[in-house]
Design a protein around this nucleic acid. Structure first.
Length: 327
DNA sequence: CGGCATACCTGCAAGC
DNA sequence: TGCTTGCAGGTATGCC
């Protein structure tokens, strides 16, 4: 699912619910993510206050009062949702967006109702919120119960996502993050930096932009979209947008501008919802309606050039483009 | 080292 | 209807 705009949307959705709250309970229901969740995971999180929620490339970084950072990746199918006290965790069907909040129940357990898990028992008394573990769905792998009553749930059908705890002081040495290129929405990113990263690269522009060492956070959708906006061919050698010294050409400027614009537009729309990506509050992102070429094979070129959007496989993944105006 | 294929995993749609 | 096939938003790993 998620590229930079979707991860940023998730971050913005989770931050208000998590920052300043303590993690009271951690339930790992399936440790088999991309790598097994470490054995001390729960112990290192329990009791910690969430000091901040950041993002680097497609990673979410949860800063904890212990000095640890929880480094999380959504893989292809990961998502978070928040259950607030007083709301059920039922998710609306896509065809029925109005029902998102329709299925309420009480955040206080009715008398005689069984606690759903041992984690609930400590809060299972009148006047205390319980963490609503009773509404968990398939592929809900990690459940955080917060001191403010909210429950934050990580769901990931394909289990390509990951969670790893790293001491903040060693974040710079973390292999998952080390070597990642510039943040495309950061101040440092510009045509010169992009040109330098592409200089000398024999591979295609498409492959170069997918390489997280060149630019952070782009994936298949936004690479296709940025290349279209810049009218550059995905097949072009990456080195051809820089001069020999790594100096930017006009093409590098166009591409850097296109990358920033498409990411900003997508974040503004709350990301793209292809299969079931949602914001953490359950609402859908809208940007998929603004795709110009991605998943639009056979349609007329949206640039009005009389060409047709085509699709071909490049490095094992679908590329969508307009061969008549992307050069 | 750079560039490329492969592997990991589930769900869904299309085709037979 | 039910089966098979291919494809999906990512990235670490291993091979040349």
């Amino acid at each position: 699912m998620p590229e930079l705009p979707e991860v940023e949307t998730v971050r913005r959705g989770l931050a208000p619910a998590m920052e300043g709250a303590a993690i009271e309970t951690v339930e790992v229901r399936d440790r088999r993510l991309r790598w097994p969740i470490a054995g001390d995971f729960e112990k290192r999180l329990r009791g910690q206050t969430v000091e901040g929620l950041g993002r680097r490339a497609k990673y979410l970084l949860m800063d904890l009062s212990s000095g640890d950072v929880l480094v999380m990746h959504l893989g292809m199918s990961g998502s978070f949702r928040i259950q607030q006290p007083g709301h059920s965790g039922m998710r609306a069907k896509r065809a029925d967006p109005e029902s998102i909040n329709a299925n309420r129940d009480y955040g206080f357990r009715a008398r005689g109702q069984q606690a759903a898990s041992r984690n609930d028992e400590r809060n299972d008394k009148p006047g205390h919120f319980y963490h609503d573990h009773g509404k968990l769905a398939a592929h809900d792998h990690v459940v955080f119960g917060l001191s403010n009553g909210a429950t934050v749930i990580f769901n990931d059908p394909r289990r390509f996502g990951s969670m790893k705890i790293v001491p903040r002081a060693r974040l710079d040495d973390e292999p998952l993050l080390r070597g990642i290129g510039p943040e495309p929405l950061g101040n440092a990113f510009d045509a010169a930096l992009l040109a330098k990263a592409c200089a000398g690269k024999a591979t295609s522009l498409k492959a170069a932009l997918l390489d997280q060492r060149v630019v952070a956070g782009l994936g298949n959708i936004y690479v296709c979209e940025a290349l279209f906006r810049a009218r550059l061919s995905p097949k072009r050698r990456a080195s051809t947008i820089a001069t020999r010294g790594g100096e930017p050409t006009g093409k590098a400027r166009a591409l850097a501008d296109a990358i920033k614009a498409v990411l900003n537009d997508a974040i503004k729309a709350g990301g793209s919802s292809l299969r079931d990506h949602r914001r953490a509050d359950g609402s859908l992102g809208d940007f998929q309606h603004n795709f110009l070429v991605y998943d639009r094979e056979g349609r007329p070129c949206p640039g009005g050039c009389k060409g047709t959007v085509r699709r071909f496989t490049q490095n094992g993944r679908s590329t969508f483009w307009c061969p008549s105006c992307q050069k």
